[in-house]
Structures are given as structure tokens and as C-alpha cells.
Amino acid sequence: MKNRSNNIYWVTLMALFSATLLSGCASMGDGRSVDDPTNSLVFAYIDMDDAPTDMSYAKLQQVAPKSEAGYWGMGTDEGIIVNQYIPPGSFQIAHFGGNSFLMGEHQYSFPTYGRNATAVTIEQPGIYFLGAYKYQDVDTGFFEAGKFSMEPITSPTEQALLKTIVTMDWVKGTQWEARIRKRLMELSQ
């Protein structure tokens, strides 16, 4: 009986943990202040129109320097994924996911080893655009795991995405108001 209780507790705990992961609405700063001047803003866009699900969470892998957590949660909003707490280092998007009533929960993963198109090395704090992509299914055999590709797209642009990001609630009253506007000025020249 005790074992069963433990199992239920464990499964409940994991379910809560999963729910936290899947809520995906909050960027995780890992204790860093949003106004830390060493923060970088890292963002990308994924068009999920042709995907089985929407995107409700995304994870940025920190490949260097090595960290205990290894991953940074990304905020997601209408295809935009963003984190405003990223310290210097090397990063790339590791996986993202979502769910739909008909298709259930899906996770989309890049290979863990090897550089993917979103890889970035941050030496100086700044605003880093990892690109805009369109999700595309790749045909596989019936018994094979599903595969997908990420096709680069030219729209929305970095400028268009930043204009959306600067209106997000978390930006107001932080250093990012000025930093994003400065970047927008640079892009408009």
C-alpha cells in the first residue's frame, strides 16, 4: 500500500513538473535579475502552421560553459520564443513542444550533439536573433519516429519580431525597453 502511495505521489509530482514545463509561458531567469546588464535577449520565431500541434514551450540548451541545469526555458507567444536572461556562453534551441486536442502532446527535438541552425555564441551582452523558421514534416516509414525539418523563412524579420516583443508585458519598466528600442533604431537605419 505504501508503495502504491509512493507511486501515486511520484506520478503526481511528475505530472505537476510536466505541467510546469508545458505551461511554457514564463521565461526562467535562473535567479538572474531581468535588469542584469550582462543579460542577453535571445529570440527566434517558428511558424507551426503545418505542425501537428502549436508550440507552448521551448528549451534553449547551454552547451558552454557547462551548467548544472543545462537548459533555459523560453517564453512562447504566437510563434515567438524568447528569453531575456541569457548570460554569455554558447547556446542553441534543443527542443520545443505543444499539444492539441486531436494530436495529443508532441515534443520536437534537435540533435543534442552538433550545431544546429539556431546555434549562437554570446561573448558580449546584446540582442540575438536565432532566425525565423517554418516547421515542416518529413516523410518517414510507418514504424519510424516522426521527423521534421526547420526551413528558414525571411518573414517575419528581426525588426518585425522585436516590434512585437517590445510590447510584451514583461518588457515594461525593465532595461529591455531601452535596449530593444536601440536595436530597432539600428535596424531601421
Binding site: 502532446e105 520536437y108 527535438s109 521534421f148
Partner: peptide
């Protein structure tokens, strides 16, 4: 790049 549908993983643990 791979896509996994976790509903097939069932409840609990795998």
C-alpha cells in the same frame, strides 16, 4: 530532428 508524440508513452513511467 525528431518528433515524439508522448500520448503513446502512456501514464506514469516508461
Amino acid at each position: 530532428m525528431t518528433r515524439i508524440c508522448s500520448r503513446y508513452a502512456g501514464l506514469g513511467i516508461v
